[in-house]
């Protein structure tokens, strides 16, 4: 029943499957080398006490789950627990990552929806607007981090200057350095950069909604706001859901923006940044890999959710 209609007999289908195998083999070998094997090794490191010195000479010892959680009995009989799972710094990073992901994706979805609705309307200069909103997306993350770092500069930044002129603040704010504004700064830059992407994905969903739906609603004299909540939003839900999960996955692994914009701030350090610090700065491959493995597990859970909720048509059987 799954044989395609072009298959005239088993031999042709067999020939095609054999060709398919050889077509896929190079890609699979490549992915095994650059993805599967390094992932396996990273997870393995998380069960060892590997450091920058022992990682290459094979002297790293197997320590089980000690990097995650470990019970130590001191000489005086006192029991101490340690490990990533008990590390306040780690949970701070988890909290930062979750906080960042939730707020940024929520803002990007709402703003993206607004921009998409505007772009879906017919007006003069629509092409120009579409081109303009592609600019933040086209700018490399590192460049936008530096650009905004300059605009948010405490002494010479144009943002402080503007806010002072309008009278919203009474003295310049060190946006990226202060603990209470660092996350806000990161959110501003991320929302600015990623809303266009969200808007384009949502716009593609909007354009799949048949126009006559709106025509019918219009003829019946239904208020546009009601049309939006009763017609547009329900029909948009599948596209919206997939876009949101896609973005959440991206947000959970954020590294470069935070590394460049707020390098030293504890208020913004995320799971990726902390894991990188542990590995690169402190040479602690064991704990650093334990952190990255935990992040991997969290993201895997989201990928499974994405595939289930998004009802991704994986094999193309639908069409």
């Amino acid at each position: 029943m799954t044989t395609s209609k072009i298959a005239k007999g088993p031999s042709l289908q067999q020939q095609r499957v054999r060709a398919a195998f050889w077509f896929l083999a190079p890609m699979l070998v490549m992915l095994a080398i650059v993805a599967a094997w390094p992932l396996f090794r990273s997870i393995s490191f998380s069960f060892t006490d590997a450091t920058a010195d022992t990682i290459f000479n094979g002297k790293a010892a197997w320590v089980g789950f000690d990097n995650y959680i470990e019970q130590r009995v001191r000489s005086n009989g006192e029991i101490r627990w340690r490990g990533v799972l008990l590390d306040a710094e780690w949970w701070n990073a988890v909290w930062n990552t979750v906080r960042f992901s939730l707020v940024s994706v929520a803002l990007e979805t709402v703003l993206g929806l607004l921009v998409a609705l505007v772009l879906n309307a017919e007006f003069k200069g629509r092409g120009l607007v579409r081109a303009a909103i592609l600019i933040p997306w086209a700018i490399p993350t590192i460049v936008s981090a530096r650009m905004w770092g300059w605009m948010l500069n405490d002494q010479f930044g144009v943002i402080n200057q503007m806010l002072l002129t309008v009278g919203l603040i009474s003295e310049p704010i060190a946006w990226t350095a202060r603990a209470d504004t660092a996350m806000l700064a990161v959110l501003i830059v991320d929302v600015w950069k990623t809303t266009p992407f969200m808007a384009l994905l949502i716009l593609a969903g909007l354009q799949m909604i048949p126009r006559d739906m709106y025509e019918a609603a219009k003829l019946d004299g239904i208020h546009p706001v009601k049309v939006f909540f009763r017609v547009t939003l329900p029909l948009l839900k599948p596209a919206l859901l997939v876009a949101v999960i896609f973005r959440v996955l991206d947000a959970l692994r954020i590294f470069d923006l935070i590394y460049v914009l707020t390098p030293q701030s504890d208020a913004t350090v995320t799971m990726s940044v902390l894991s990188y610090r542990q590995i690169q700065q402190f040479g602690d491959y064991g704990e650093g890999s334990a952190m990255s493995t935990l992040l991997f597990l969290i993201i895997t859970a989201f990928v499974l959710l994405y595939i289930k909720l998004g009802r991704v048509d994986l094999s193309g059987e639908k069409s």
Partner: peptide
Amino acid sequence: ILAVSMFPQIAVLSGLYEL
């Protein structure tokens, strides 16, 4: 394949470094 493209890069960092 889709799952690999959504990988957190940090998850393979130490393994790739070794490789």
